[in-house]
Design a binder for these strands. Structure first.
Lengths: 236, 236
DNA sequence: ATGGCAATAAATGTGCACATTATTCGCCGA
DNA sequence: TCGGCGAATAATGTGCACATTTATTGCCAT
């Protein structure tokens, strides 16, 4: 029962999750631009399910702050202000500083090996000129840092932050998604390997500053999206 | 419109929020013990609203991880494992390390003054022997640290963590809620004042270790709760 | 023209009835 | 007596119809 949703006649236990994932990905990929209104009836028709099901998913997305819901006025993809963007990046920076402190305490060869392996991948993608892979791996570096702690709470928080910042990137940096310089990543790992936590933190700070500086200050207008075309039976 | 919900006949725009707050507080205050089943019909009768309204609130609470929802099997107050508890405390510790790093950068007299004022309050409550105030102020210290950064994302994350740990305290430390030693709080502020961030972080680490060590390792069984008595018309 | 205003359309919110799934209880046989 | 099995009960899940609110359109008077 992989994708046989053709009509989705009655009850599919995992349908909610599929719709949730579908909308989430559309937002994170930038296919759903900031400000896009998410009309329940339209989404229901696009996914071929009842409106109640869509409502439930939208409210979940709202509780997770992935979309904005105004009572009686519907749901939309958030249009973050520059100040909110700054706050998300700052939060990531502050979190990573704490993560580096903790990593300095519990660092071992296995963790270092995994980080090294990631850097190899990242450099390889850059060498190949594979921009898509570079973007993905560049973000994954920070995920790896947090995941190395093995703390579900922290990993989840970072994922939330990243999902928010992805929307922001689509608003303020439409053409080229930001790619962290792999050298900066490597330098952070080297500082960790030397157990020089203050230096690692300092590198991380400058690293984030670079990323932030790359953002434009004026938002780019988003063209209206066709929900049916995005989520219709042909697509996913 | 304070508490005139006597019957709550038709539609109250803020009813959802009131119910949400009511359940949230009951969990955080420990009146709803870990493992308690939250039956929709029962809650609906207790609050005097329809079951749909309760469902919506429960799903919101579930999305925020304040309760556990298993499909087709209902909702309950989480019963965290020792491992999950450890993760929450560790997350708080890691976050606070990052916060201290950032505070070391943006510290000013106003922030220091606010922290000093809080320490005065805290010492005062301890001197009075006001245990309730001590518990509250002791937790508030850490909230103040994060709030000093003025970052909504970080403040929200800490609030989430604290709301989770409150449940844990009720499971693993029933009688005496943990009170941070005010001396330890004061020492952290002093380290900050001296711009000695590594020392502040170290103090924070040991501080959390003390708190964690105070937790019992074996959970305390929770008596079943009467939802109608807790949320009935007489109460809130 | 234009600004306000009313009628219409569209979208969201809600209660209810019924379906589906879990749990409990009682029965029967070994 | 105990273990399994099935009916009865209880709780959750879902679609639908209708209410309420908001947005849009068209009209009229100035």
């Amino acid at each position: 029962m992989s994708e046989a949703r053709q009509r989705a006649a009655k009850a599919d236990p995992a349908a909610d999750e599929a719709i949730y994932q579908s909308i989430t990905r559309a937002i994170m990929d930038g296919r759903l631009r900031a400000g896009t209104k998410l009309v329940e009836q339209t989404l229901a028709e696009a996914f071929g399910v009842s409106r109640e099901r869509i409502r439930k998913v939208l409210h979940r997305l709202g509780a997770e702050r992935r979309i904005e819901i105004v009572p009686n006025r519907g749901s939309r993809v958030p249009s973050p202000t520059p100040e909110e963007i700054r706050a998300v990046y700052e939060a990531h920076r502050v979190l990573e500083a704490g993560v580096l402190v903790q990593l300095g305490q519990m660092l071992n060869d296995e963790i270092l090996a995994r980080l090294d392996a990631h850097l190899v991948e990242e450099r390889d993608a850059a060498a190949r000129g594979d921009r898509a892979a570079s973007v993905r791996l560049s973000g994954a570096f920070h995920t790896h840092l947090v995941d190395a702690l093995g703390n579900e709470e922290l990993s989840r928080f970072l994922r939330d932050l990243l999902s928010r910042s992805s929307v922001m990137v689509s608003v303020y940096e439409p053409a080229t998604q930001s790619v962290c310089a792999v050298d900066e990543h490597g330098a952070i790992v080297e500082a960790l390997r030397a157990r020089d936590v203050p230096r690692a933190i300092d590198l991380s700070r400058h690293h984030f500053r670079h990323v932030e500086q790359r953002l434009r200050l004026d938002p780019v207008p988003a063209p209206p999206a066709d929900l049916r075309a995005l989520f219709g039976p042909a697509q996913g």
